[in-house]
Write a protein that binds this DNA or RNA. Structure first.
Lengths: 198, 198
DNA sequence: CAAAATTCCTAAACCAGTTCATCGTTCCCT
DNA sequence: AGGGAACGATGAACTGGTTTAGGAATTTTG
């Protein structure tokens, strides 16, 4: 009925798998359609699933003490998303994860993942690599936030993830970059004016 | 000659291991003494090792465009440290990792780690769990930096990692928390004055 | 299609945190 | 032991980014 090829490609790029193994691996995932503005993770509830985005886009955010939203992560096609701390430790989540558009995802439950990890060394390796990549990505993000100014972070985002910049609402992007919408708007204007001079 | 018990305890807390397995696992690590101010990772060179601190303390930092130091991570007894992106992808490092005191570490090389991972499902699991914990920890750090003010981050640090606050130099702590030494000094003073009023 | 709601832009006042400059203290090193 | 470098404190001037407040444009929904 549905097409697992995106997930298969994603996995096989990182680890050699026989056709049978790839098949068995994917069988633990189920397709779910998610409507725009629908939540797939909510605070207080344990994040039972890890999601792989086939099409559409998502946004993970937390609510600060003053009620402000802080975007922690975006996910578009071929990215993973969930509340990582909630999922890994099976504790109540602190994040919302919401669809930004009507989307299609593949989800795996924590239990199914645990079985896969237990079942074979190869599957364990896949999740090990996944976790390493996640850790490495997060480490880069920490460095970026610590070493660059708001403007530099925006420039970096434009260069590295133009798809995301053009696809997500401005207030979500601003809070991801650790600034206000107003300031992002100012930066955008400054860029346009700078371009006009060339 | 040396005592592997700290590493053994650390691993066994996370994964069940037979005595033989624990022995074999630890055999891939070697003890190294590191003098204060000595580097165990340097930019441009590939981080060949991952380190487990037996005693002493370390600091990982990068140099910003303007020459400022930004502390990315501290490590004291029973913590892991290296330039994660360099080690995992075996690419040139962007960080310095320096001993803050005369220290004793256990190091494992990337190749030895790869062999362990390949050799057995159990060892693969250990490194998977390690990576998951690293990713989860980093995710919490990103959230903290995005949602809290400089003062709140300092308060949090005091509560959660008082050992580190009391053990590392002020300028290192300040750059870890994403602020200047001068401002941290001001916050410290504000705290002392606030306490006097109680 | 029109009303309601959400998103985006602009601008001025404001503030958390930085910069700069100076001084006292502690830690090393030989 | 003593001279130099590293470390911490403090205050005044400054700035990157926020807050507040308003209005315009776009999207959603009935």
């Amino acid at each position: 009925m549905f097409d697992y090829s995106k997930l298969k490609d994603h996995i096989c790029k990182r680890q050699n798998l026989s056709a049978d193994e790839a098949e068995e691996f994917c069988a633990s995932f189920s397709f779910v359609r998610v409507k725009k503005r629908q939540f797939i993770v909510q605070p207080e509830f344990v994040a039972k699933y890890r999601f792989f985005v086939i099409e559409g886009s998502f946004r993970a955010y937390v609510i600060g003490d003053g009620g402000e939203e802080h975007t922690i992560q975006f996910a578009i096609d071929n990215w993973w998303i969930t509340d990582y701390n909630s999922y890994i430790f099976q504790q109540p989540a602190s994040m919302f994860v919401m669809a930004l558009e009507d989307s299609l995802v593949l989800q795996i439950s924590f239990d199914a993942e645990r079985m896969l990890k237990k079942a074979s060394h190869t599957y364990e390796t896949i999740f090990r690599i996944l976790a390493e990549h996640t850790a490495a990505h997060m480490a880069r993000r920490v460095i970026l936030n610590l070493t660059k100014t708001a403007e530099q972070r925006f420039e970096f985002m434009l260069e590295k993830y133009p798809d995301i910049v053009n696809r997500v609402p401005q207030y979500a992007l601003a809070s991801y970059l650790g600034m206000t919408t107003e300031y992002l708007s100012k930066l955008r204007k400054r860029r346009v004016n700078a371009k006009k001079l060339i």
